[in-house]
Design a protein around this nucleic acid. Structure first.
Lengths: 329, 329
DNA sequence: CTGTTAGCGCTTTCAT
DNA sequence: ATGAAAGCGCTAACAG
C-alpha cells in the first residue's frame, strides 16, 4: 500500500495526498476530508525511506558509547534518547567497547545510513578519534562529544570538569580533618587522567606531604577497589582516606575496609565518583561527586539539534560537578 | 557524490559500479580494479537509504524497553545490540517508560522506517500490547518478546521462568533452616506477579504456616526495600528471611537489617533477584537469582534473525534461572 | 562482461 | 486548489 493506492482510492493525485499527509495549507477542505477518510480506513503508513530519499535525512542520530551497561553511560544515553525522541528523531545505539575497529565500522554504517548527527559518549573518544580515517569520517556530519574535545570543523563538545570534581572531594576530606589521602585510579582514559591530576594538584594545594606513591592503579571493578585497599592494609601504609575515580571502586574500597574491621568514616573515609545507584547501595552510603550525566546529555542534544537544524547559536560548554555528601566521610 | 559520479570517473556504467560495490561475480578483473581505484580515492559512500528504497530494508531492528538505565534491561539491550551488529544490523533504542502512548508512538515510527523487526524487552509488554491499535501495529513485522508471550501471528517469545526462579530461593532458604519467610513485591508487571505466586506456592509446598500477610508490597528502590523491612521490625513481626523480587529492594532490605543491628545472615537472611552488580556491591554480597539476560538476548536475536531472514526453524522457548549463592543466606 | 532502463515511494517544482 | 512530471541514488531485469 503506497501513496498511489491512496490517491486512486480517493480519486485525487498523489500530490494532493502528499499535501494532506504533510499538513500543507493549500488543500480544499472537502478534498482533505475525503483523503483523510481514505487514509483512516486503509491503515497506510508512509515510507520514511522514500521520504529520506528526497529529504536526505532519516531523522536518526547515533549514540556511540563504550558500553551501555555502564550506568553512567546508560544514564547519558537514556536522556539523549528521550530528548531526541521528543524532537522527532530516533536513536541508534553503538557499543564500541572503546575499540578503534568497532568505532570505525559503526561510523561507516552510520554515515551510509545518513544519520543526521552523532553523539560520542565517553572520554575514550578523545584519544580514539585521532586517526586520519576516523577524522575524515567525523568530518562528514555534525558531531557532539559528551565529555571530550575534538578539533574538527563539525565537532563540538560538552565538557565535564573532572579535575575540579576530584578537587572537591579532596577539599571536603581535608576540611573534615583527613590528611593521609590515597587515590584509586582505574583506567587510562583522558577523564581518568584528569581526575588523577586533580587529586595530585589538590593534595599539593593543601600542603599535604608527598609521601611518594599515593596513587594506586587498579582495575575498574568492585574487586579492583577491594584489592587496592587490601594491599594498602597488608603493607601497613598509613592512610585515613581513599579517593576513588569511580563509585564502583569506592564500593570495593568500603567493602575491604569493613571486612578488615576498619570503621568508615571514623577510621577511614572513602569518596566515589558519579553519584550512581552504586553509591546509594553502598553501606554506609558513599560521599560522591555528581558529574551530572543528565545535564551533559541535555546540552549535547541541544547542541547537536542546533547543528543539524542550523538554528540558534551553538557552542561548546563546560559543566562543573558537585559533591554529594554521604556517610563515608 | 553518487554512483553516477563514480561511473563517469571510471568510464563505466552505474551497473558496473553497483556490481563492484556489491562484490558480484561477473565483472572483468581490469574493470573491477579500475572502479575500485576510483572508489578508493573519491571516498564515496553508497547511500543506504537508496538501497533501502529498493530492498525495502534498512537493516535496522528496534529494541523497545521500559528504561535502559535499569541494569537488567541494559544488559539485555547490550547483548542484543552486539549480536545484531555482528550480523550487520543497527539497533534503535526506545525507552517507553512502560507507557502505552509512548509504545504506540515508537511503534509507528519504527514501522514507518521499515525496521526489519522488533524486540520487546520486559514483561510490561505482556499487558501493554493488548490494545487493538498496538496489536495491529505488531502484526506488520516480526516481533520477539524477551520475557513475555503474545498471541500474534508474527510474534514469538523467549520466556524466563520467574516463578521457578523464586522457588529456588525459597527452597534454598528452607534447606538452610529459615522458616519465617516474607516476600517483598515491588511492582505490578506479569513478571512481578509470577515471582510472587512462585513464592506463595513454594512456601505452601514446604508446609510453612500461613501466618497471613507475608507478602509486602513496596516500591522498586533501595528505599522501598528499607521501608518494608523497617515496618516489619517496627511492628515486631517474627521473621528470619526476606525474599525479594529485585536485587535493588534486597539491597535496601539488607541496609535496614544492618542498621537495626540485625545480623545477616545469622539472624535474618535476604535473597535478591537478577544477579546484578547491585548484588555484589551489597555487603554482605547478596544471594540472588540469575535470570540470564545475556542468554535471553542471544536467543531473542537468533529467533528474530531467523524470522527476518526466513531461515532455520524458529520457535519460542523458556529459560530456567539459577541460584547464585552469596553471603546473605 | 557491460550497458540501458525501469522502478522503489515519496517530495517538490511548475503548470494549469 | 490540483495535477503532471522530474528526480532522489540505488538495484535488478533485460538486452546485447
Amino acid at each position: 500500500m503506497n501513496i498511489y493506492d491512496i490517491a486512486r482510492e480517493a480519486g485525487v493525485s498523489i500530490s494532493t495526498v502528499s499535501r494532506v499527509l504533510n499538513n500543507k495549507e493549500n488543500v480544499n477542505e472537502n478534498t482533505r476530508r475525503k483523503v483523510e477518510e481514505v487514509l483512516r480506513r486503509s491503515n497506510y503508513t508512509p515510507s520514511a525511506i522514500a521520504r529520506g530519499m528526497v529529504s536526505k535525512s532519516m531523522r536518526t542520530v547515533a549514540v556511540l558509547t563504550v558500553d551501555i551497561r555502564v550506568p553512567h553511560y546508560a544514564r547519558t544515553a537514556y536522556t539523549i534518547e528521550r530528548e531526541f525522541s521528543r524532537r522527532g528523531y530516533e536513536v541508534t545505539i553503538c557499543n564500541t567497547g572503546g575499540e578503534l575497529a568497532e568505532t570505525e565500522k559503526y561510523l561507516r554504517t552510520v554515515i551510509e545510513k545518513k544519520a543526521d548527527g552523532i553523539v560520542l559518549v565517553g572520554s575514550v573518544f578523545n584519544t580514539l578519534c585521532r586517526t586520519p580515517e576516523i577524522e575524515s569520517l567525523l568530518k562528514t556530519l555534525p558531531v557532539v562529544l559528551a565529555n571530550g574535545k575534538l578539533d574538527l570543523p563539525n565537532s563540538y563538545s560538552v565538557l565535564v570538569d573532572d579535575r575540579y570534581g576530584i578537587s572537591l572531594a579532596v577539599d571536603h576530606l581535608v576540611s573534615r580533618g583527613y590528611r593521609e589521602l590515597y587515590y584509586l585510579k582505574d583506567m587510562d582514559t583522558v577523564s581518568a587522567r584528569l581526575k588523577c591530576e586533580g587529586f595530585v594538584e589538590a593534595r599539593k594545594k593543601h600542603g599535604l606531604e608527598g609521601s611518594g606513591k599515593y596513587v594506586l592503579e587498579t582495575s575498574l571493578s568492585i574487586d579492583g577497589g577491594m584489592k587496592a585497599v587490601q594491599e594498602l592494609i597488608r603493607t601497613k601504609q598509613k592512610f585515613d582516606a581513599i579517593v576513588c575515580g569511580e563509585d564502583i571502586t569506592a564500593a570495593g574500597a568500603v567493602k575491604a575496609l569493613l571486612r578488615a574491621g576498619i570503621k568508615v568514616p571514623e577510621e577511614a573515609a572513602v569518596t566515589g565518583f558519579n553519584n550512581s545507584e552504586y553509591a546509594r547501595i553502598c553501606e554506609p552510603q558513599l560521599t560522591t561527586i555528581d558529574n551530572k550525566p543528565e545535564l551533559v546529555a541535555m546540552l549535547s542534544v541541544q547542541l547537536l539539534t542546533s547543528l543539524i537544524e542550523k538554528t540558534d547559536a551553538y557552542s561548546s560548554c563546560t559543566i562543573q560537578p558537585e559533591l554529594v555528601q554521604g556517610k563515608t566521610t
